[in-house]
Design a binder for these strands. Structure first.
Lengths: 349, 349
DNA sequence: TCATTCTCTGACAACGGTTTCAGTCAGGAG
DNA sequence: CTCCTGACTGAAACCGTTGTCAGAGAATGA
């Protein structure tokens, strides 16, 4: 509750002198001022400071779902940097809703110095308004149509989809299905396209009923897997485009008593802490998570240093990595050739 | 960037009138003011408002580890309420460090109207200072020695520990070990005490080497499980006091090729999304998670309503629930009696 | 000794809202 | 017509901090 005036009075100087002292200026009576600060437990008012300076030293972080382990890790990365750099993190959760995102961003514009955003949908125009309001914005995980003017930290989603496809093809699968994420998000689109491109490149054209669009939630992974299993000719391998849908898929396979990988190989996108402990341990396309949050925050804070402020937008694209465990295997029809394939896989693990 | 003065000038009134209009007062030229607001895209400056009013409309949320699914869920609950009530959430992650928590709280005191805290350790005195600074504080998940003066949303940790012990005793185990959480946190202590009390109540006194203290992290679950397995007479059942240590324990059991539940029954505290999909599906003590965050935030926001401001501290204690899956079973020595036990378990699931 | 630096100082004016207070004006009552 | 009431208004003060500015005092040089 003590103000700079109280400190000044106690130290026998003017508020201006206290302010100077606190900002590192040379002051004759520094001991007296320091003593007054200590005795009163003085701490400057953030509101007054930011009213005067126009800076809040706060960064907004907007994610679709904080309970998704991927976003939790990204947030952890962001938070660690803000704390180290004397910034704070204002967190918002949009539940994958573009409308909530609109409200959140409109509200944040006045309260933060910059925003890190994992957009809910690609069509969203609001982020462009944010930029117009002169609030620096960095995308993480997801991009935006027309977002080339912004910094972004992304992963090579198409490359990851391709890796997944090549892995399944390499095992000998040809009846390969994909449960994609929301097609109005960049990761959803790119992972699917990379995956399908690689299949086609190998001469495998999946029928439409093998090419399903989910919404990144567990329930859609579950439902779409059930629909695949009910086909007259179900696939022998399945690619699921994010961690939650992969869990849904695995649950459906368990519930329907489908042997994995015996009757169905499953490869996911995004690793889980529990990945190695699942039945069976999951083969996944992994990517950096905490690191993405750290990089995005660093990119954003750079913009407040005058020498970098006007840099052209930077896009950091990180590589994905195939983690082979045991949810993928050659299809049954190739069981005879299994020994050879197994030795090939051993090299990789 | 537009200020209330700009709006006033454009509408041909004074700033005071605009302010009144915005706060719902009757104003003659309301259409003109509204039009000016719209045309300029005016939004009041949060800093100026909070400087004048002394309120920030921001709540601080402090958790030990946002990547722990439990805390991620709690944060989600907190955030959903702040948004609905026109508050914002300032998030901090303390990495289970009392020192970081001190810094975070000292910093937050000046920037938020209230704080929800999951304390890193019980000995921490800082939260008491927070209260002295007149910032309302609600504990969630963990309590504090001397914290009776505060609101809190907790679970019946001792009861949960007891449930776990009774479950293992009921299966016929007598060589029962526990990997407890940090003993300087309330949940760590209460879960252990409830567990041990129930064992003793049944005449089972675990030897000291069965009573191990971890730190709620995965690595300690892993290490302590290995040490249990290296004993001349290892236990036949194991209780692990939180989700991450349970994963560590399960990893150690896998790595050492120990059959679960054949040679070792495992029961954890806190469920996981992947709980049913693990090898084997985990038996756990479950508790509400998102709900705890919601309740804590509601409790906190109540304090800003004059009629509740002076209420005596409220402590909400939620019940735990046993979720039986297949990581627990009768010990081998009782294999003959297994059929009877199995039918008993079937009633519960 | 006096002029000229140089260092440090406090008064004062912002920053953008809210609130108080002393009005102004219209309408109604006498 | 005058007075009073009530509804609305704008000027001004304030919230706590920082930046500007003119000036005080000491130190330096001539």
């Amino acid at each position: 509750m003590a103000t700079i005036h109280d400190v000044a009075a106690r130290a026998g100087v003017s508020p201006a002198t206290v302010s100077r002292f606190l900002r590192g200026g040379r002051v004759r009576s520094s001991e007296a001022v320091q003593a007054a600060v200590d005795e009163l437990g003085y701490w400057p008012s953030a509101a007054a400071r930011s009213l005067k300076s126009g800076r809040t030293h706060t960064i907004g972080g907007v994610v679709p779902d904080i309970t998704n382990p991927y976003f939790a890790a990204v947030v952890k990365g962001m938070e660690s940097v803000t704390r180290a750099e004397d910034y704070r993190l204002l967190l918002a959760n949009t539940d994958e809703s573009g409308e909530r995102e609109d409200h959140v961003l409109a509200d944040m514009i006045r309260r933060v110095d910059g925003i890190i955003l994992a957009p809910a949908t690609e069509q969203d125009r609001t982020p462009l308004h944010v930029r117009d309001a002169d609030v620096p914005l960095v995308f993480v995980d997801r991009d935006l149509a027309g977002g080339e003017r912004f910094d972004a930290v992304l992963v090579d989603n198409a490359g990851g989809g391709r890796q997944a496809a090549e892995h399944l093809l390499g095992l000998g699968h040809t009846r390969i299905a994909a449960i994609s994420g929301s097609q109005d998000t960049t990761p959803g689109r790119c992972r699917r396209e990379g995956f399908l491109d690689a299949l086609r490149g190998a001469g495998v054209e999946p029928p439409p009923e093998y090419d399903l669009a989910g919404d990144f939630r567990e329930a859609s992974g579950y439902q779409l897997t059930l629909s695949l299993l009910s086909l007259p000719e179900p696939p022998t391998a399945l690619f699921s485009a994010n961690n939650l849908m992969t869990l849904g898929a695995l649950k459906a396979l368990h519930d329907m008593r489908v042997d994995v990988p015996g009757r169905m190989s499953l490869i996911g996108f995004d690793d889980l802490d529990t990945g190695p402990l699942l039945r069976p341990p999951l083969t996944v396309i992994d990517r950096p998570m905490v690191e993405q949050g750290v990089l995005a925050m660093r990119l954003l804070l750079r913009k407040f240093e005058p020498e970098y402020a006007d840099d052209t937008p930077r896009r950091i694209v990180l590589d994905t990595e195939l983690v082979e465990r045991s949810s993928t295997a050659p299809p049954r029809s190739l069981a005879g050739r299994r020994a050879a394939t197994t030795s090939r896989r051993a090299r990789h693990s």
